[in-house]
């Protein structure tokens, strides 16, 4: 079993591949359905009497974490994981996760299929400084295509929404994946129907066909070329500033509300139980202390650097 040559996602069959397994790496974010998608593929392989190994990592609080599943199938499969640089297909349910796993893709013949959906983790929004930007990595479809010619970026979530159920996005992607593998449409449809809630069988059937058609049909050629991933918002333009905390000592009663609530932990009570800015470098001028102080004892001033008083 190798990647089909009759499909729109074309690969050249290599002469030595007959004994080697086909490698499909499925990646995404916890809760997206990576495991469900890979189970469908594994079940399909089993039904076609192929040796198949599907390897994943779960445990810990994986919700929102990076999730991946290796599916390998063929006449014989040894390692449960796909060796670096040997994935035939990388199917990503989320854009940055796709980029993360690109080194696993075969650099010459690998096919990359990714949803353009972006899930920005709270972890990348941890910088409270003025003018901070999220560290969510951005690469355009064009940039990826320079490295991986067989790249397909697709708004699967949008397409599934068009069908009336955004959760069918994974099935749209399976439809696309199906064009690269030699399994019959009926087999795919039968297993998908078993794997989804009974009420959504019909929408998933349509989603699968839509995904297939989108890759194969010339009617979607232009659309395929126009897909872009959303650019991150530009970095906020901020002046170089000096932050100055004006503490009216006479009004401070040492309740320490500001000390406890300061997100950067830069305030402390001094020996006379009066608040002071103990760690000025960490202060981001979020003004939380100013707003929370019941006695109006703190005022946060942000001066532009040239007018700042030394």
């Amino acid at each position: 079993m190798r990647v089909s040559t009759s499909s729109a996602v074309e690969r050249e069959p290599s002469p030595t591949t007959a004994a080697e397994p086909t490698n499909v790496l499925i990646v995404g974010v916890g809760g997206q359905g990576v495991i469900t998608v890979s189970k469908v593929l594994a079940q399909l392989c089993l039904q076609n009497k192929l040796k198949v190994k599907q390897s994943e990592i779960h445990g810990m609080a994986k919700r929102g974490g990076a999730v991946f599943s290796h599916v390998r199938f063929g006449r014989e499969v040894y390692s449960p994981t796909i060796p670096l640089g040997q994935a035939d297909i990388l199917l990503a349910l989320e854009w940055a996760e796709g980029l993360r796993w690109l080194p696993y893709l075969n650099p010459e013949t690998g096919t990359f299929i990714s949803d353009t959906q972006q899930i920005i983790p709270p972890f990348s929004c941890r910088n409270r400084k003025r003018g901070a930007t999220s560290n969510y990595v951005f690469r355009s479809v064009e940039q990826v295509k320079q490295h991986v010619p067989n790249s397909y970026a697709v708004d699967a979530t949008g397409m599934a929404e068009g069908l009336g159920n955004p959760r069918a996005a994974n099935t749209v992607l399976l439809g696309m994946l199906s064009t690269a593998l030699d399994f019959s449409v009926d087999d795919w449809q039968a297993i998908i129907a078993q794997s989804v809630p009974p009420k959504t069988v019909e929408v998933n059937r349509q989603a699968f066909l839509l995904g297939r058609e989108w890759i194969q049909s010339d009617a979607h050629k232009e659309e395929r070329e126009q897909v872009e991933v959303a650019k991150p918002p530009p970095a906020p333009v901020v002046d170089d500033v000096v932050i100055d905390l004006e503490i009216t000592e006479a009004w401070c009663k040492g309740c320490d509300i500001c000390v406890k609530m300061c997100p950067e932990r830069c305030l402390a009570l001094n020996s006379s139980e009066i608040v002071e800015l103990a760690n000025p470098d960490a202060c981001t001028a979020c003004r939380l202390c100013e707003w929370l102080c019941p006695d109006f004892a703190i005022a946060v001033h942000v001066h532009k650097k040239e007018t700042a008083i030394a």
Binding site: R63, G85, S124, V137
Partner: peptide, 19 residues
């Protein structure tokens, strides 16, 4: 050693979090 596709990027950190 086999060749790999390298985009030279640091992917976004996605550690496990409380739900």
């Amino acid at each position: 050693l086999p060749k790999t596709t390298d985009l030279g990027i640091e992917p976004v950190a996605r550690p496990p979090v409380l739900c």
